[in-house]
Measured scan of single mutants.
Amino acid sequence: DVEPGKFYKGVVTRIEKYGAFINLNEQVRGLLRPRDMISLRLENLNVGDEIIVQAIDVRPEKREIDFKYIP
C-alpha cells in the first residue's frame, strides 16, 4: 500500500504536458505534475528513467496517486 509522505522508487512510463506518469510496480501508477517538481523540469525526464518520488495524495477509491519530486 502506498502511504502519503513516504518515498518510493518509480519508473517514468509516459510524459504529457500536464505531468509524468510514474509506475511503482505493475499495479501502482501515479502522476508527477510540473508544480510538484523541485529542481527538476518535465523536459529533463525521459521514459524509462528511474526516480525517487514522494506520495503526497493517495485516493485508493479512484486509484489515483499524486507524487512530488524532492532531490
Rank of each mutant, 00 (worst) to 15 (best):
E50G: 11
I38H: 14
V2M: 07
E3P: 05
P4S: 11
L42V: 06
D49Y: 08
N44K: 10
E50D: 11
G48Y: 06
A20F: 03
V2P: 08
I70Y: 12
R41N: 10
M37L: 05
E64V: 08
V58G: 04
L24K: 00
G30L: 03
L31P: 01
R59L: 04
Y8E: 00
V28W: 15
L31N: 01
D57W: 09
L42M: 09
K17A: 13
V58Y: 10
K17E: 12
I70G: 08
L40P: 02
P60A: 13
L31D: 02
R41S: 13
Q27I: 12
I65V: 10
G19S: 02
I38T: 13
L31E: 02
V47C: 06
S39L: 13
V53F: 02
I70L: 13
Y69N: 04
F67I: 03
E50T: 15
D49E: 08
I65G: 03
D36E: 06
K62I: 10
V2N: 02
V58K: 05
G48W: 09
D57Q: 15
A55E: 02
K17M: 11
F7Q: 06
E26W: 15
E16V: 14
E3V: 14
V58H: 06
I52P: 03
E64C: 07
N23K: 13
E3T: 14
V12A: 01
R14S: 12
G10E: 01
D49F: 06
R14G: 08
K6I: 09
V12H: 00
G5F: 10
P4L: 15
I56F: 11
I38A: 11
N44H: 15
R29G: 12
E3K: 15
I52N: 05
L40K: 07
G10T: 02
P4N: 10
Q27M: 13
L24P: 01
M37R: 01
V12F: 01
D66V: 09
R59S: 06
E50A: 14
V11F: 12
I70F: 13
L24R: 01
P71E: 09
T13H: 06
I56W: 11
D66Y: 13
G10N: 01
E50F: 15
N44P: 03
G48A: 04
N46D: 10
R33L: 04
A55W: 02
D1A: 14
R63C: 10
K9H: 12
Q54M: 15
P60W: 13
R33T: 03
E64W: 14
K62N: 10
G30Q: 01
R63W: 11
V12T: 01
Y8C: 02
N23M: 11
L31T: 04
R59A: 04
A55K: 03
E26Q: 15
K62A: 11
G10K: 01
R29S: 12
F67N: 00
L40G: 06
D1V: 15
Q27F: 14
Y69I: 03
V53W: 02
R14W: 08
V28M: 10
P4R: 14
R33V: 03
I51V: 09
